[in-house]
Amino acid sequence: MKKKILLIAFCLFTAFSVKAQLGFKLKPGASGITENVTKKIKIDQIKDLKNNVELSDEAFLYQIKQQDPNKFIITLKDINSDSTKKEDVYETLDIIQYNYKTTIKKQKNEARNNILHDLYTNSRQSNKKILFPDSIIKRKSDSVTLLGKQIAKLQVTTDSLYYLYVKDLMSFKSTNFGFGSLRSRAFFDLIYGNDGKRFNALGNAGVNFGNNTGSVYSEIVNGNLGLFRVSLGTMISSTGKETDADAKKEEAYQRLVTSGGNTVLNFEYPLAYLHSKNNQYNLISRLITRGTADFPEFGTKTEKWAGSGSFDLDLYADATTSNNNLRFFCNFNASKIYGTDVFKDNLGINKSNFTFGQLSLGLVFLQNFKISFIVATFSSEKSLQNRHIIAGGQVLR
């Protein structure tokens, strides 16, 4: 008993000493104590107290912690951090409505769980005299069903509101990295959806011409699958080369630089999205996994099926005038390609596994017309390096 009294007295004496030495000042209306010391120790949770408390004497806190080790969680705090600073939240009507709806959903869910628990507990009673009558059971059961429907409806509403908020937040923030399934879906909606018209230069869709060879590529269907955007596209190519051997090589090269094959399955994942506040300047990075197939039935200059798979790193950047009537863009793509023997023979190269990359430049004018040029290509296969410039065009609306 004497030891405890001495320990408590020592703690109080130490506390007053520390306070006198450091000159603590409790700000009016503030929830914390501020002081100028090289190190802070913050108690994040204290039983029966709602406000955070900050102290700076490590020995003093250690002695208190010995009295009740489970009462405090102690963390070191950097000298330059602001104890009163809170995380910035981008306040929009969507997130405000989300907060309201989430609170209502939580209340309804608690009410439903209480009724369910009440019914379950009563159903386990062995004494029939205290069991609920049928009218009460029906009323409570109907309430559970109704609340369940209301909660499900609120869940759909809150999911939609939060998704809109994530899109707004990505447009508000100038740098975006780290994409989960929701952020990934919001990113692709910004890029390819109705809100993404400023990025309509992205990709090789449209008509392309080069060295007496032309092709038309179009995306047929697309959708989101978890982290990825999945799309299926098709391409038709033709050449004016006289010999079959030259025609086969030129068509294969045309497919390679514009899509990869006459049937293409893409899986896209966003790596980064950077932009200026008014989206006058943009930078997008994606990881693309692509599977392609050339079917003779779709008009290729070969009698056998050819296929390939690739892993691509894609970088896109653009800049637009203040009135959006001219948008200049640059697209760089580097890939590692794994093809079949027929795919290799069609291109006239030595290895079926090779690296390939290309640089495209172009512009969009009047927000409706796109002109692009594949100005450079590089590859581990010399015959694919800077073969010739390919021009492309597309009406975007």
Score class of each variant (00 low, 15 high):
Tyr281Trp: 13
Ile288Arg: 03
Arg290Ile: 00
Gly206Arg: 09
Leu256Gln: 01
Leu271Ala: 02
Leu265Pro: 03
Val230Phe: 00
Phe228Gly: 13
Val207Leu: 15
Glu219Trp: 06
Thr292Phe: 00
Asn278Glu: 13
Gly223Gln: 07
Arg286Pro: 00
Ala205Val: 05
Ala205Glu: 13
Leu225Ser: 12
Val264Trp: 03
Asp246Val: 03
Phe209Lys: 05
Ala252Cys: 13
Val221Lys: 04
Ile236Ser: 09
Tyr273Phe: 14
Ser231His: 07
Leu283Trp: 15
Gly226Met: 04
Leu256Asp: 02
Tyr269Val: 12
Gly223Phe: 08
Arg229Asn: 10
Tyr269Asn: 05
Ala252Trp: 00
Gln280Val: 08
Phe267Arg: 01
Thr292Tyr: 00
Met235Phe: 10
Gly226Pro: 02
Ile220Met: 10
Ile284Asp: 01
Gly226Glu: 01
Met235Glu: 14
Val216Gly: 12
Leu256Ala: 01
Thr239Pro: 11
Val221Met: 04
Phe209Pro: 04
Thr213Glu: 11
Leu227Tyr: 14
Thr239Met: 10
Phe228His: 15
Ser237Gly: 14
Val257Asp: 07
Gln280Ile: 01
His275Lys: 10
Gly206Trp: 06
Thr234Cys: 06
Ser218Ile: 11
Thr239Gln: 08
Ser231Leu: 05
Ser238Glu: 09
Phe228Val: 06
Gly226Tyr: 08
Leu265Phe: 15
Tyr281Pro: 08
Val257Ile: 10
Gly206Met: 12
Glu251Pro: 01
Tyr217Cys: 02
Glu250Cys: 06
Gly291Leu: 09
Gly260Met: 04
Ile284Lys: 08
Lys277Arg: 13
Asn222Leu: 00
Leu265Gly: 06
Thr292Ser: 13
Tyr253Asp: 04
Glu242Pro: 04
Pro270Lys: 03
Leu287Glu: 02
Asn208Ser: 12
Asn224Ile: 07
Ala247Leu: 02
Asn279Ile: 13
His275Trp: 14
Gly210Leu: 08
Ser276Gly: 06
Gln280Asp: 13
Lys249Thr: 04
